[in-house]
Design a protein around this nucleic acid. Sequence first.
DNA 1: GCGATGTTTCGGCCGGGACCGAAGCGTCGC
DNA 2: GCGACGCTTCGGTCCCGGCCGAAACATCGC
Lengths: 245, 245
Amino acid sequence: MIEVVAPTTVAFASANTVAEVAAAIGDPVRAAMLMALMDGRARTAGELAVLGGITAQTASGHLARMVEAGLVVAEKQGRHRYVRLVDPAVAAALESLMAVAAIAPPRHRPTGPSDAALREARTCWDHLAGRLGVALADALARDGRVVLADGAALVTDVGEAFFCDFGVDLGRPPAASRRPLCRACLDWSERRPHLGGRLGAALLDRFLELGWLVPGPRDRALRLTPPGRSGFAESFGVEVSRAPT
Amino acid sequence: MIEVVAPTTVAFASANTVAEVAAAIGDPVRAAMLMALMDGRARTAGELAVLGGITAQTASGHLARMVEAGLVVAEKQGRHRYVRLVDPAVAAALESLMAVAAIAPPRHRPTGPSDAALREARTCWDHLAGRLGVALADALARDGRVVLADGAALVTDVGEAFFCDFGVDLGRPPAASRRPLCRACLDWSERRPHLGGRLGAALLDRFLELGWLVPGPRDRALRLTPPGRSGFAESFGVEVSRAPT
DNA sequence: GCGATGTTTCGGCCGGGACCGAAGCGTCGC
DNA sequence: GCGACGCTTCGGTCCCGGCCGAAACATCGC
């Protein structure tokens, strides 16, 4: 008795959809558009066109394809069409692709002008990433305010008091005493975890509120202000060198 | 004074490499190959060719492209060429793409033959995923053995004793008392977290050792054995229905 | 050495898709 | 209503890349 195996590709039905999603990301222009949308804000089709360096009609085609693939949603407002990522899961997928791209090729990686700023400090959906984000996570772990391990993170009791003092609202008091309300998010540029989850979002909100960081105009880069520099040093023990190597 | 902005796409230098990586995944055949490699084991080029339903020479081209993109590595052993994922980060990226693909299109998603088995129970790099994996995580959380929140997970004291009794070795005793040694991994088919990290890997090892689960021959699907069925019910309170809807 | 087997390279075919110019449609401001 | 503006559709060009057959190369068993 011979077992007959169908010769054609039937092993993974979902592979097709994965391929569709990946192919929808797998174009330089579309990838740039998606990365510009990673902060969760919506952009108009025209903004994305100039960002990609293409004409409006070509951008329209790209956007249609990304809508089709379920990556972005578009809604009309007047004569503009606002486009945003359909779900934080899309941003997470992009981050993980960036992580793969960062480890993969020691080949020519032409670090562009704003690339340095992105590596320094940027938003990752709703929280802080980049060198500053990783340094902050390290400092909080060093001081026993959070515990990082195995891609997960956890707020300690002493950390909870500290964050409360710092003015971040962590929502409802923990029902279970040891609830990890923050998520360790792998940083694509640093290859080390930074803090995400509710805590990461609340911290970034607070930093923006305090004026320690100001968002960049057209990308996800964040600029550290002078009060931010001293604030991070005093409150968190994070010294930010002026220019990294 | 007018600020001149370069019209071409310079906003994100890393966008190109992200696009390269995504494009390397964005082909049905390559995606199927990568998903077959997600268990971390290596396959020969020929195996991947028949899996993709293509000829050897076409598969060779696909593999060359994936090597170029830094997704897989290949090493020769005799007249075979073994291919494996270059890093667990690649598997993580594929999982996150699957998550996006799962939420995105309510369109035609032709669930293939082995797709049902994959949804039921499969390996996710080195731990258990699928309906069974999610149910296990739920049961452990319900019984207070782990705490799940915000994409992170944490073993409780009572859980630590339980896992020790169950025969899984969690490695060195925790230096910090509240170390989260497991990771909550978002399940693409269930859209709910399952247990990864060291704990997830140790549990899967133990299940295989006990013969509760047996690995599928050619894909990542896992088959639940009769002792497994009763074992999951008795030890974890997880009842596995025979055929899900 | 010689054939069998696994894998790659070469050459050619062909379709998809990225791009733009021109034109069409809807919306805003006057 | 009319032009300006934002966006999409249509038509056409062009090139990338997926596919295979044939052949070359490497390795194993004899």
